[in-house]
Design a protein around this nucleic acid. Structure first.
Length: 421
RNA sequence: GUGGCCGUAGCUCAGUUGGUUAGAGCGCCGCGUUGUGGUCGCGGAAGUCGGGGGUUCGAAUCCCCUCGGUCACCCCA
């Protein structure tokens, strides 16, 4: 409790404003441009769903079993705030049956009830894409390439792309049993905390950070050695495609990822610049079968999600993608009472200029300070003299020499068009 | 959920072995004579020292609980 009469943002949430939110806008614009130029269209879907929608992510996953942000609404519906983006899109596909391939992108908050740390929040934000209705491995290549291009466009360089294949549903099932057997024989060597996973989800053991387990896992059977011919062939097409596009990647047979729905291609972008332990900045894979689980037709799909906060953390660590300067064309300084500020800013905004002003009839000194702080290129000054003459003083705020010219009020728009060109 | 560290003005912090009206820098506001910013000078506002309880003549300083932040585990974006 802070104090009885003061509120704070809920645990694990943040307010984003000022230069940082300007940066978010720029990031969103970069992402949208990257994926829209590949034919992906924005999807806006509800931030909450019937909890069953998210349960389809897998009954064994932490996201479902312990991190769901859920509640019962006034109509007795069991609702959950979305923990990730894909399930909602799959549900939307099943509901609307759009023409395929259906390529969408989203930007959304995601909620997980867990304890916050660096790179982990209760409400974080993701951008992502989903492509549904095609099993073509070249689509896998496209999706991975877009994720790669996106982070590159932000300026990131110090990251690795990890790629793996889980095979088809049979491959996956077969591998899980084989792995379970192999690990069970060596259960005594595993870290005690990891042993229970043998029953619930043996693949979880693969990405354990405990040294004892890592030691054992190093020699564990790899799923990529045990794929069906068909799955192996399509995975080759994927890795070959990445190579053809000049995208560096590492095969990582231990990359399992958290959600149960993945089949075939899975991939992850890990920042090498982030010191903290949460270094995955983008992750995704193919989820053939998920749409069916939502009651839709048999529909393959692939996509990725990328955490905005983590990506920005990586940008900070690499010293790239700084907040853009906020720009303003003019700042109106009016010491005649406010009529000029009111009318001139409105006129200029309608003419397409970016204009701001002071309020509360502050002193000229105060207004000039505000003008300076605003980052505007020009101060438009209206005092008693200018008002009497029907003119406006136009003063540069960026140049060292304090140039100031007098412009007739009726010519101000033309003058600014020229000066700000 | 478990564990370590931390919690003093908007921000970054200082506060001696518990002792009178709690400080600095930055930021913010005002002023430096007639209407002009970024430098400089002067002045000002702003803190129930996270919250609650306890020990004490007296606590920002000690103890307990609690909330929050942070880092790690778990897991993930």
């Amino acid at each position: 409790m802070a104090s009885p009469d003061s509120y704070r943002a809920p645990k694990g949430t943040q307010d984003v404003f000022g230069p940082e939110s300007t940066r978010w806008e720029a990031l969103l614009a970069t992402f949208a441009d990257t994926v829209e130029s590949a034919g992906y269209g924005l999807i806006q879907s509800p931030m909450f769903e019937d909890i069953a929608v998210f349960r389809r992510l897998g009954e064994e996953t932490d996201v479902v079993t312990k991190e769901m942000y859920d509640f019962v609404d006034k109509g007795d519906r069991h609702i959950a705030l979305r923990p990730e983006g894909t399930a909602s899109v799959a549900r939307a596909f099943a509901q609307h049956r759009p023409v395929t391939p259906w390529k969408t992108w989203y930007a959304t908050p995601a909620f997980r009830y867990e304890s916050p740390q660096s790179g982990r929040l209760r409400q974080h934000h993701q951008v992502g894409i989903e492509a549904m209705g095609s099993a073509d491995p070249d689509l896998d290549v496209e999706v991975i390439a877009l994720g790669h291009d996106y982070v590159r466009r932000l300026g990131l360089q110090r990251f690795v792309l990890l790629v793996n294949s889980m095979g088809d549903a049979d491959d996956r099932r077969r591998y899980v049993e084989r792995l379970r057997g192999w690990l069970t024989e060596r259960a005594g060597d595993l870290a005690p905390e990891d042993r229970p996973k043998l029953d619930t989800n043996p693949m979880r053991v693969l990405d354990s950070k405990r040294p004892a387990t890592q030691e054992v896992v190093r020699d564990a059977p790899k799923i990529t050695d045990d794929l069906s011919d068909e799955a192996a062939a399509r995975f080759e097409r994927v890795t070959g495609g990445l190579g053809a596009l000049g995208i560096d990647f590492q095969l990582e047979p231990r990359l399992v990822r958290g959600l149960d729905y993945y089949r075939h291609t899975t991939f992850e972008l890990q920042s090498e610049a982030i010191e903290a332990s949460q270094s995955t900045i983008l992750g995704g894979g193919r989820y053939d079968g998920l749409v069916e689980d939502m009651g839709g037709p048999v529909t393959p799909g692939i996509g990725f999600g990328s955490g905005i906060e983590r990506v920005l953390l990586a940008c900070d660590a690499e010293g790239v993608f700084a907040a853009p300067e906020t720009t303003l064309d003019v700042f109106v300084v009016d010491v005649t009472g406010g009529d000029a500020a009111r009318d001139l800013t409105a006129e200029l905004r309608r003419a397409g200029f970016r204009a701001d002003r002071s309020f509360d009839a502050r002193s000229m000194r105060a207004q000039m300070k505000a003008a300076d702080r605003s980052g505007a290129r020009l101060a438009l000054i209206v005092g008693d003299q200018e008002r009497a003459d029907g003119t406006v003083g136009v003063r540069s705020l960026h140049d060292a020499e304090r140039t100031q010219v007098v412009v007739p009020a009726e010519k101000i728009v033309d003058h600014l068009r020229e000066e700000l060109r």
